[in-house]
Design a protein around this nucleic acid. Structure first.
Lengths: 235, 235
DNA sequence: ACAGGCGAAACTTTATACAATCCGCGCCCG
DNA sequence: CGGGCGCGGATTGTATAAAGTTTCGCCTGT
């Protein structure tokens, strides 16, 4: 009875337009369609989703609490621009939390869940073959969220959702190559370890997967100053 | 990270009334003055803080996102009532995060910070000697937040603040004895380990401290039903 | 020609008014 | 006499309008 989804976080009802806005913006960020620093005008979003500024405002405030939107007083809401320091914190937190999440996921693994993971892997592969970079990026992030859902630990799930969204921005800002965001092979290996219920292997693979993602980033502080300066000059 | 010099009237108390409301309610929860299930009427709070319903609403939404307030549609906002399952999740997350936080705190330990910790310990002792249960509970929670601030890890700090607030509700709901909420001796031991820069000891003491707090709880599911029933009848 | 200031426009912020929803109570019917 | 039904009060959800603040453009003075 613990793992039941409560209406708080997941209100699929069409009447809850706030969730629609929030999820729409989140998806756009996860797909790298919204760039850091983009202004999110209230009128603009309200017109897109057919909602009043009141609802847009609440959605933006929730996103700000998740750390993927910055609200500057009397200025408006902007897509967050994580600093290299933020990036290091995010990935350190993920390295701490996600191995534990995989542990729980193995405890909660059922054939249905494993099928779901397998299906997700094929979706990832198809998107990559199709060359659909946006879907590929989004699915790569969703994989980690799926494992967290599987774990049934709602707190970890909430924390990780935040971290994934911020990771998407970080990867967009600081990645070096144009290789796929999240190696599909890693995900397949993690699923294999889950299927074998090998916690140690799953933890290790998740950890090395995260390390590899972070290793593909360019987080030197000089880059930070450069970007910050550029931002100051641009603004 | 922004400049602290804001040219004009940027008094953080008067201008940002939303924060005042949020912090006031949070403090009331941390001091066990607001009981789970208490209704937080918008007009009521607005009158207390001299704010309009708009501001009260945003504050309540932020608190809902932190998990210490439940907003039921067309019903209003209520102080959250964590279930035993929630309690287990919260403490598991704390056992995962806080040892790491102590590690970082030791890395960032400066004489000023250690003084601050020491001062906090004396405040805790004084409150306990004075028999001020409310201040004692609040300070016990703040100790953990202080260590997280010290670590300089803003993500861990944000996560832990949520967990601490929820822990306060959990302790209020499920604690067995009337012993002090958070053993002061444990805190003193942790500070001693930090001063000695002994990471292993600090991690171990933090972990056992959290385990001891959780061990003082009564988290059988029957207790939850019992309390819930009592509350329904009482309300 | 350039720097500085003034003014208007656009935006966010805040407050208020309106609409929808839910709970409680009384009434009517079985 | 008990239960179902409908109405009234209250509270929340939503929208709209007013107020404050910032920013950008233009104009004037040097």
């Amino acid at each position: 009875m613990a793992a039941k989804i409560r209406p708080k976080s997941d209100a699929p009802d069409a009447s809850d337009r706030v969730s629609r806005i929030r999820e729409g913006v989140t998806a756009a960020i996860l797909e790298h369609r919204l760039l850091p620093g983009t202004k999110l005008g209230e009128d603009e979003i309200g017109e897109i989703y057919g909602a009043s500024r009141t609802l847009v405002r609440t959605a933006l405030q929730q996103l700000a609490h998740e750390g993927i939107v910055n609200i500057e007083k009397n200025r408006g809401a902007f897509v967050a621009r994580p600093t290299p320091a933020d990036a290091r914190e995010v990935f350190e937190a993920r390295r701490l939390i996600e191995p534990t999440i995989v542990d729980h996921a193995i405890d909660a693994a059922s054939p249905a869940w494993i099928d779901r993971l397998q299906q997700h892997l094929t979706e990832e592969r198809e998107a990559e073959l199709r060359g659909d970079a946006r879907a590929s990026v989004r699915l790569s992030g969703e994989f980690h969220g799926l494992v967290a859902e599987m774990s049934g630990h709602s707190i970890y799930l909430g924390f990780l959702k935040e971290l994934i969204a911020r990771s998407s921005l970080i990867i967009l800002l600081y990645r070096r190559h144009d290789a796929p965001a999240c190696g599909n092979d890693h995900h397949a290996g993690i699923v294999a370890a889950i299927r074998k219920r090998d916690k140690q292997a799953a933890r290790a693979q998740m950890l090395s997967h995260l390390r590899e993602i972070e290793a593909e980033l360019f987080l030197k502080d000089s880059a930070a100053d450069e970007l910050r300066l550029a931002d100051v000059l641009g603004a």
